[in-house]
Nucleic acid binder design. Structure first.
Lengths: 202, 202
DNA sequence: ATCGAGTACTGTACCGTCCAGTTCCACAGT
DNA sequence: ACTGTGGAACTGGACGGTACAGTACTCGAT
């Protein structure tokens, strides 16, 4: 069922995602998108009412992709033995996912336009952020029920966990352009962050 | 030495700061700034070469103001007794300062334009972020020398402290527009964050 | 006579629309 | 299976309208 129309639609979405992530909302022209999608501008406007609508669509689509990625990640079972090692590995994967250049660029994009598109910022916050925290929290709750952790507010614990891990690398990436972290940096953040977390919650 | 010229200069800086913080870089026109400063556009261009230069100047000036505020804050002495209470108060003041709407808007502004002005992002990161962490770290080092904390990497400890405190409220503010936190929220973040920090570092 | 206000102007970028001509696709009849 | 046909979708380019950075020029104030 890849009708021509559907193919074009997808091509436009892909192109728009690329260009918006790269150049920001106002830095992107509809002509740019049409050209990259190898499609006429008329066709773009046939599929999307206007620039704002197109922007909202690609942001939400990308957010959903990220959301499912996090779900998968938090679903990985954690052994009772070697709790610290297992948790460190979870932390490490969190870091990999959330410092991925595309994710960083998406954050940038939403923050930059949170004034113009308040609904979009709120939607991202709820679907891409709070939901991620909630799944992480349910993992912690499980560990707590097994007696491996000592937690009364699982959501708060998830907040602390992610704050310990992400505050530095995410901020660095936000401010210093497309800075790529070395693997060693991320390893270190995962290890030390997990250690502090366990000191408080084991 | 308030020459007429100096006063105009200041008026333009103030107006530009206000408008840029409110509407973002590309959302702000030079006419807006001139009008708010009660000055002709010609005069604006007499004092600042172009829009980019003006933007860079006001960002760096605001960053410096924030930096000195943090210095003051981290310099407050901490009693040996009631460590947790004292640290919680420090945390609370950190939160107040860094969730101030102006600061949040400045962060937004820099992140939004980190691609176009990479130097500015880097400058903010070094002067407004790493420097703040460094002063916090030196406070922790002092406490460690007094035997109140057990720290081997003071800078890392400062990172963890700020991550625990700021991750949630700052993210929320970034994404959900000018959301104001209730005092109670901030109290709670300060208390729980400090508790986790002390569990790991006391 | 110097400085700045006020305003008009230039050049550019870009959103969204329009139109004339072309390609794709589903479905009919053979 | 093969062809023909109608309609929908697409192309490419042009165009109106608007917004805005930066410049030029006139006139009044001090």
């Amino acid at each position: 069922m890849d009708s021509r129309s559907a193919r074009k639609h997808q091509a436009i979405m892909d192109a728009a995602t690329t260009v918006f992530l790269d150049k920001g909302y106002s830095g992107t022209s509809m002509d740019d998108i049409a050209k990259l999608a190898a499609v006429s501008k008329q066709t773009v406007y046939k599929h999307f009412a206007d620039k704002e609508k197109l922007f909202a669509d690609i942001v939400l689509a990308t957010t959903d992709r990220l959301d499912t990625a996090i779900d998968l990640l938090a679903g990985i079972p954690i052994d009772a033995d070697n709790l610290e090692e297992n948790l460190t590995r979870l932390a490490r994967q969190f870091l990999t996912t959330l410092t991925h250049p595309q994710v960083i660029q998406l954050r940038r994009l939403i923050i930059a336009n949170a004034d113009t598109f308040p609904d979009l910022g709120a939607a991202w916050y709820e679907r891409g952020f709070e939901r991620g925290l909630a799944t992480l929290a349910s993992t912690f709750q499980r560990l707590s029920d097994q007696g491996l952790l000592r937690i009364d507010d699982a959501l708060l614990a998830a907040n602390h966990f992610s704050g310990l891990l992400l505050w530095i690398p995410v901020n660095k990436a936000m401010f210093t352009g497309r800075s790529q972290h070395t693997e060693a940096d991320l390893d270190r953040h995962a290890a030390t962050g997990t250690r502090v977390f366990l000191a408080a919650y084991r």
